[in-house]
Design a protein around this nucleic acid. Structure first.
Length: 734
DNA sequence: AGCACGCCGACT
DNA sequence: GTCGGCGTGCTC
């Protein structure tokens, strides 16, 4: 410690340097000098020099590290912005420790609104004075009439309302009829009215709603799993809790998986509260993003509906968190800071001491276990609302009802499609596989087309005449000749994709109007919306789609859902495969039967005895959930208190094995170290050639972090970076 | 993350 | 002779 720094610390008048989190992957806060006579407090957002750049950082808690005074640079600016409060700072620290990602990175997620740190500039507006123009034209008259309410108007707003051009208003301003005034910036959304339109609730719903309302009234941390079949009205129920929080003047965060953040949800909210919630997601325009961020930290915005990143908004007075579709994998962020927003939401609710509602028709295993063990309140909604009856579900055993040679649809399903067509109702065929065929091979030499970058099979897309890798995005045209043996025209497609199912449907029902829906459809989201509307209007008979048809839209005439290959995805090595399949099948079959018409679901499977299939047709998933939870405990999650490093990525499997051995040798006794295959690996890692990721299960994350750092520093040089995620139930640390 | 520095291949 | 590839290292 140098004499200089001592002197600095001993200067009278308190703070000389403070810790500041900078938005870079550093493992600690940097120290910055506080300019003479200034005071800064933890949470304040400041502008600081970092190398050649100026960046925004947050003053952090605790003592500043003592650094070489020659290095110490001063804070340039303290933004005129409310500070991140203690609860937000604790949350950032917690997430940083838990995900083993640099605190500055986590803080950056909370500061993703570059120009929002200064107050919004006031809006220039005009107010009517006592002056009147020398000549009163009809246009001028209309403007004055319009503005005679005494309120201030913006120029364009006034011109528009009066139905005149802006130059008319300009003229009146020069004549002194209007004076310029400054108006506070308008709120980004109107305040919600908790009593705007009270929903008519069933007895079940009303009871659940009342319980949630009480939790909000009482305040404090209170996690609830709101569990109800599709159409049982979960949204209306949690809106009751939202209404209560709004009545108390507190803020509400509603998290939705990216895809669910549709105008349908916003409209529904509007219908109940008379205004829309503020939105927050990655595709927002920067201006809007800044406004929302600013009005969230000032407390002006009361309700935010957002994707996972909304979890890091700096609420002034958070009173309630809702996580809708809590089981949805879209809550997992799998780059930079790896986190599951659902879990971190529970943590945030705990730190902020507010209730949290996790809602789903098909809850995750984790949440079910937490509900059963009593850590969460468990609210179940049983009945489907109003006339929406559950479809009659049946398994089609493909061993006894095989499809015709070269086909994939069993006679049972084809027959049902025919009958549905006859009644002029709609059928949905679900197959979670884009393209024409998942595997292409050469009939002569057996060559299989593989991705040069990640070695998964290339999927033929016949509409586009391409072979595509669904893992990393690699694509190449379909060749005429086999690249191995050179034989012409002997490539053969193996297995079905939706394009191939469409072909099969066409051959059986040439007169039917079919639509193929998948995420890679030409025309993007816009086209997709048009197609969905067309389907809702009954302009299609047979819809063939992937996962994306599982959500959202209700189709009034859809009375048959056929699952082409229910076994798909059960054997891919993902430890959550069965759970995901159950959730997906449950959602897809739920697309039918919301019409009041008698509806059916036919599920094609080669494993009718599989627990997933049994859970689906019985409508009673209890046994399945029990079994999965047990399985999960045994296979993946070591008992708490131990840890497992799970090293993934197809390309680095050998290295992973080696490192796992190293970890086993060096890790403390009782450490379980296992390797997961690429199914759990994030896309980003499969893309890069020599990267790997350590997934850490356990509660020793802080110790592990330093241990891993040391090990990696001492170990062989590796290309790429190492990322670490703690992937267990965060509840156990609260 | 940015952004500099630095050390080897093909060019106006 | 330089322009520019990206490997390595640093930022209070």
């Amino acid at each position: 410690m140098g004499k200089d720094s001592q002197q600095l610390l001993d200067l009278p008048g308190g703070e000389v340097s403070v810790p500041v989190l900078v938005p870079t992957p550093l493992d600690r806060a940097f120290s910055y000098a506080v300019p003479q006579g200034q005071h800064v407090a933890p949470g304040q957002i400041v502008q600081i020099p970092l190398g050649p750049r100026k960046v925004a950082g947050v003053v952090w808690d605790g003592e500043a590290d003592i650094v070489d005074p020659k290095k110490l640079r001063p804070i340039e600016l303290v933004f005129d912005c409310p500070p991140l409060d203690k609860s937000m700072r604790s949350f950032i620290d917690w997430v940083s420790r838990y995900t083993l990602s640099p605190p500055g990175y986590v803080a950056r997620m909370a500061l993703r609104a570059p120009a929002a740190f200064e107050p919004e500039p006031p809006v220039q507006a005009l107010r009517l004075t006592d002056m009147r123009p020398e000549r009163l034209t009809t246009a001028r008259e209309r403007v004055i009439e319009q503005a005679s309410d005494g309120f201030a108007w913006t120029k364009s707003g006034l011109a528009h309302a009066a139905g005149v051009s802006a130059s008319v208003v300009d003229g009146l301003v020069t004549q002194g009829v209007f004076e310029p005034v400054q108006m506070p910036p308008p709120p980004v959304v109107a305040p919600p009215d908790p009593d705007y339109a009270r929903a008519e609730l069933s007895r079940d719903q009303a009871a659940a709603g009342a319980l949630l309302r009480e939790d909000v009234e009482a305040g404090g941390f209170k996690p609830t799993l709101l569990d109800g079949v599709t159409g049982s009205g979960k949204t209306e129920v949690y809106f009751e809790a939202v209404a209560e929080a709004v009545r108390q003047g507190r803020q509400v965060l509603i998290l939705l998986p990216e895809i669910a953040l549709t105008s349908a949800f916003l409209d529904r909210f509007h219908g109940r509260f008379g205004s829309k919630p503020a939105e927050w997601h990655s595709e927002m325009a920067p201006r809007m993003r800044e406004k929302v961020w600013r009005q969230v930290i000032t407390g002006e915005v009361k309700v935010v509906a957002g994707a996972r990143s909304a979890l890091f908004l700096p609420f002034k007075d958070l009173g309630l968190i809702i996580v809708d579709e809590e089981h949805d994998p879209a809550y997992k962020q799998e780059d930079r800071t790896f986190y599951n927003a659902r879990d971190m939401a529970v943590v945030r609710a705990h730190i902020a001491q507010v209730p949290i509602v996790l809602a789903s028709a098909t809850p995750s295993i984790e949440s079910r276990v937490n509900a059963q063990s009593g850590r969460y309140e468990h609210l179940k909604l049983h009945a489907r609302f109003a006339e929406a009856a559950l479809p009659d579900l049946r398994l089609v055993d493909m061993r006894t009802h095989p499809p015709k040679r070269g086909g994939f649809l069993s006679p049972v399903l084809l027959d049902a499609i025919g009958k549905t067509l006859g009644r002029e109702e709609q059928s949905l065929l679900f197959l979670n596989r884009r393209g024409y065929a998942p595997l292409t091979l050469c009939r002569v030499c057996g060559h299989r087309f593989q991705c040069p970058d990640c070695s998964s099979w290339l999927v033929e897309h016949r509409f586009r005449n391409q072979l595509q890798c669904h893992h990393c995005g690699h694509g190449e045209p379909v060749p005429q000749a086999c690249p191995e043996c050179g034989t012409l025209d002997h490539l053969v497609a193996c297995g079905p994709g939706i394009e191939r199912i469409a072909e099969e449907v066409d051959s059986h029902f040439p007169e039917a109007r079919t639509i193929v829906l998948s995420s890679d459809m030409a025309g993007g989201t816009k086209r997709l919306r048009i197609e969905l509307e067309a389907i809702a209007k009954g302009e299609a008979d047979i819809i063939i789609g992937t996962q994306l048809v599982a959500k959202g839209h209700n189709f009034p005439k859809m009375t048959l859902v056929g699952v082409v290959d229910a076994d798909l995805g059960l054997a891919n090595g993902d430890p959550r495969a069965a759970e995901r399949t159950y959730q997906l099948l449950s959602q897809v079959t739920g697309r039918a039967g919301r019409t009041g018409l008698k509806s059916h679901g036919l599920i094609q499977t080669y494993q009718p005895a599989h627990p997933v299939m049994q859970a689906i047709v019985s409508g009673d998933p209890e046994a399945f959930y029990e079994r999965e939870a047990d399985e999960r405990r045994r296979a993946i999650l070591p008992p708490f208190g131990r840890l497992a490093a799970v090293i993934v990525s197809a390309a680095t499997r050998p290295e992973a094995e080696q490192h796992a051995r190293g970890l086993r040798n060096a890790a403390p006794t009782g450490t379980a170290i296992s390797i997961l295959g690429p199914a759990e690996a994030p896309l980003a890692l499969i893309r890069g050639r020599y990267r790997f990721r350590l997934l850490v299960h356990g509660d020793k994350s802080a110790d592990l972090q330093s241990y891993l750092r040391a090990m990696l520093a001492a170990g062989p040089k590796m290309r790429g970076s190492v990322q670490v995620q703690v992937d267990i139930d965060p509840q156990s640390f609260l």
